[in-house]
Design a binder for these strands. Structure first.
Lengths: 139, 139
DNA sequence: TATGCCAATGCAACAATGTTGCAAAATATT
DNA sequence: AATATTTTGCAACATTGTTGCATTGGCATA
């Protein structure tokens, strides 16, 4: 069962504001991951750039969205699975980034393999980013 | 067998310049990965910022260094294994980034697991970034 | 080793991205 | 409805990355 945008914000003890509603809605509607620039572009001049930065920061802290590591220079964010069901979770899924169109997908079905590191290293998180061509861009 | 800095540059058909020698030397001496800012800091005011950007770009194109994906906002570069032996190679190893000190290690011994993606996706590259505490920072 | 070509550098100017402090406005609380 | 708290927008600034162009320096050739 899905919670609404507003309920998600409430669950995370965040004030209900226009920017938060709109930005969270963008994530819900978007299939892929979003970069700051995408959001700024989609929401037009409605919100200040700073507001978007701070909103993203807040969402990350609350576990509503998570960052995706990329080899190019862009930070991308994606909804945490079950974020709208109120649960935090570890980001144990694989990300796919299309070389052509740049779209980033969360491949929720593929779990990150367990790795054994050298002695002395402890693991807090494992990110897997696969690059290649997505369904739409292979010709 | 290791080639010298100069020989590595020659092998890649690059002119031998002060900046290239110095920057490549930094990578050889460094255990971990370097960000642009690290290099700018280490080399002082000796080289222009633009020169460092262009040198890194060139090294990446020649396969001497590779970028490491990160979830924070920094692009990091590391020597390609065997770069000084003249061989290109696929980046099929795991990267580790310490949450505390930020040092990034190439774990050359751990190979990236093969993944099977959904139909329609083709893989060109797989990056694995593990976060946690490194040997030095675990207390 | 001197000459000339081509590649690389430095500079300047600019664009994009991210951060901070603070007053004003919106939201939540009573 | 009044007050307290949070969030926003603005301004100013810092960092990061890019581009064009004149100058410098490396390298091949004679």
């Amino acid at each position: 069962m899905m919670y609404s945008i507003v309920e998600t914000l409430k669950k995370n003890q965040l004030s209900i504001t226009d920017s938060r509603k709109k930005i969270l809605e963008l994530f819900v509607r978007s299939k892929g991951a979003l970069a700051h620039a995408d959001i700024e572009h989609e929401s037009g001049t409605e919100f200040d750039r700073v507001t978007i930065y701070r909103t993203l920061q807040t969402f990350v802290e609350k576990g509503i969205i998570h960052t995706i590591p990329t080899a190019d220079n862009s930070v991308r964010y994606a909804l945490c699975k079950d974020a709208c069901a109120g649960g935090h979770h570890h980001d144990d899924h694989v990300h796919f980034m299309c070389d052509d169109c740049g779209t980033t997908y969360c491949l929720d079905n593929i779990s990150v393999p367990k790795l054994s590191l050298p002695d002395g290293f402890t693991i807090s998180q494992t990110d897997v980013v696969v690059s290649g061509k997505c369904r739409k861009c292979r010709s």
